[in-house]
Design a protein around this nucleic acid. Structure first.
Lengths: 269, 269
DNA sequence: CAGTGGTCTAGACCACCAC
DNA sequence: TGGTGGTCTAGACCACTGC
C-alpha cells in the first residue's frame, strides 16, 4: 500500500520547511494574538513599524497581514490600521435543534438565533432590512418552482448582530400566492415564527433540506459583514417542504466562515 | 427603518465601482475560464506574457492569478505554470442519505463515496493510507471519552480521488477497546461497512452528529489535495453514538471547499 | 539551458482617517 | 496635515521544470 505522500515529498528537513518571510511573520503575529498579547479591539502596530522592526519591506509585511485578514483575525480600515477582531469562540448553529418543537417557546427564527448568541455571552440583535414583494434570484425561483424574473415572492430580509459584530444575513423567500395577505408578509411573523403560520395555512412543513457551499462574499455582503474581500462565507440554502413535497420557503443564510460552525444531528435506523 | 447599507456606502458611480487592476484582471481571466475559452487541463499564458498583454507589472498579474488560485479555478506548479483545475460541477455529499439503510447494498462508507463521484461521471478511487493502532488527536480523544496522548484508538485513514483529482481525506477513530480483534481493524471492513460491524458487536449506532468548520489546510493536507496554501477546506467531524449515548466512532473529513457542497435533510414534527 | 512562478525590495502615488 | 493601508512599478534573485 505504501505511503502515498512519499510520492510528492522531498526528504524533509529536520527542523522545519523553509517558509517565505511573510508566512513566518504571519505566524508570529498570529501567535501574539492567540496568546492574548493582543486582544479583540487592540490595534496592531503600523505596517511601517513592523517592517522596520523585522527588517522587511512594507510590502512583505502587507502580505503577512493579508493572511491574518483572510483568517478573520484582524480587520483593516483604510487610514486607521489593523484591529484584532477574532471572537473568543465561534458561534454554533445547531441546525436540527433550532427547528424542533417550534410551538414550545418561540425557539424558531429569531428565537433560535437569540439562543445561539446568548450562549456565548453576547447580545443578539436582529434588524429587518426589507419585508415585501420582490423578484427572487433565479436559483431561488427554481427551487420554489415559480417563474423566473417576476415579482412573485415575499422577501423577508434581515441582518443579525452579536453585540456590535455583524454575523449573518438571512433572506427568506415565500411564493407570493402563499404569503399574500397573511401574517407571513408582516414584519412580526407572530408567535412560533413563520413555521407556525405555515401550519395554520394548512401548509405545515414536514421536511427540511439545507445545502452548504462556501464562496467569496459579494461587495454588498462584504460591506455589511465588514469582511475583507479575501474572506469566505458559508452560503446555506434552507428549504422547507410540505407533506406533499411542495417547497413553501427558501431561506439563504450568509455567514462568515471565521465566525460560525454548523452542527447537524440525525438518527440512524 | 431605513437601509442599513446606506450608512457605509458612498454615492455609487453609475457604471461600476473603481476596482484595483489585479481584481479587474482576475475578473477577465475568470470569465475566460467559466465561458469555456480555457478548459480543465489548459495552461494559462505565462505571467510575463499577461503582464505585457495588459500593460501591467508581473507582480500585479501574480496577484490576479492568486485570486483564481484561492477560488480553486487554477493550480500553479513551480516551473510549469498555471493550469485550469475547476471541475464542471461540485461534488454533492448527501449526509443523511449516505448513512441510511446501510444493510441494503453497501451504501455505507466506500459505497456512498462511490455513488457521489459516479453521479458526476467520474471514476472514484479510495486508497487506505493506514489502518492500525494509533494515538488520536486530543480533540478526537475528548469526543470519544478516552485518555489523551495514548495509543488507545484504531485509526482508519484513507485518501479519495475522483478520476485523478484528490478530493478528500477521511480519518476514522474507534476506541481500541472496541476495535481490537474485530473486523473493524482490518482494511476490508466487510459487507455494509463498519456500521454493520458495530451492530454485530452490540454497539449499533442510533444517532449521528456532524460539525462543520472551515479552515486553511495543513501542509500535509495541502500536499495531498494539491491545494494552494490560500485555499480553504471543510473540516467535517462525524460522530456515531449508540442508543445509550456512547460515542463509538469519530471520522474527520477534510475536503476542499471549491470541490464540495454539503446537503442535509431531516423531518419536522 | 531557458522559461516558469515565488518572493522580496525600494520607491511611489493614492484614498482615507483623525486631528 | 500627517499617519494609515491599497496598490502599482521596476527590478532582482531564487527554485523549479523540461529540454
Amino acid at each position: 500500500m505504501g505511503d502515498p505522500y512519499r510520492r510528492r515529498k522531498r526528504p524533509r528537513p529536520m527542523i522545519e520547511q523553509p517558509k517565505s518571510q511573510f508566512r513566518q511573520l504571519a505566524e508570529i503575529l498570529r501567535r501574539r494574538i492567540t496568546d492574548g498579547e493582543w486582544r479583540r479591539g487592540d490595534r496592531l502596530p503600523g505596517e511601517h513599524d513592523l517592517a522596520a522592526q523585522y527588517g522587511l519591506s512594507r510590502h512583505t509585511v502587507n502580505q503577512a497581514v493579508g493572511l491574518l485578514r483572510r483568517d478573520g483575525l484582524v480587520r483593516v480600515e483604510r487610514g486607521k490600521g489593523a484591529v484584532v477582531t477574532v471572537l473568543p469562540q465561534q458561534i454554533t448553529r445547531a441546525a436540527v435543534a433550532r427547528y424542533q418543537r417550534p410551538e414550545r417557546e418561540r425557539e424558531q427564527a429569531r428565537g433560535a438565533f437569540d439562543a445561539e448568541i446568548r450562549r456565548l455571552g453576547m447580545a443578539p440583535h436582529v434588524e429587518y432590512r426589507r419585508v415585501g414583494r420582490a423578484t427572487p434570484p433565479a436559483e431561488v425561483a427554481a427551487l420554489l418552482g415559480i417563474d423566473t424574473g417576476e415579482q412573485n415572492a415575499l422577501i423577508r430580509d434581515r441582518l443579525m448582530w452579536a453585540d456590535d459584530v455583524p454575523v449573518q444575513i438571512a433572506t427568506t423567500f415565500i411564493p407570493w400566492t402563499i404569503a399574500e395577505g397573511t401574517q407571513l408578509a408582516e414584519q412580526d411573523s407572530g408567535p412560533g415564527g413563520i413555521i407556525s403560520r405555515f401550519a395554520e395555512l394548512g401548509l405545515a412543513q414536514t421536511r427540511v433540506t439545507e445545502r452548504i457551499t462556501v464562496r467569496t462574499p459579494s461587495d454588498e455582503e462584504g460591506q455589511f459583514l465588514e469582511l475583507d474581500p479575501d474572506q469566505c462565507v458559508y452560503q446555506l440554502v434552507h428549504t422547507g417542504w410540505t407533506a406533499d413535497d411542495q417547497p413553501v420557503e427558501v431561506t439563504v443564510h450568509t455567514m462568515p466562515v471565521a465566525l460560525w460552525r454548523l452542527d447537524y444531528e440525525w438518527p440512524l435506523d
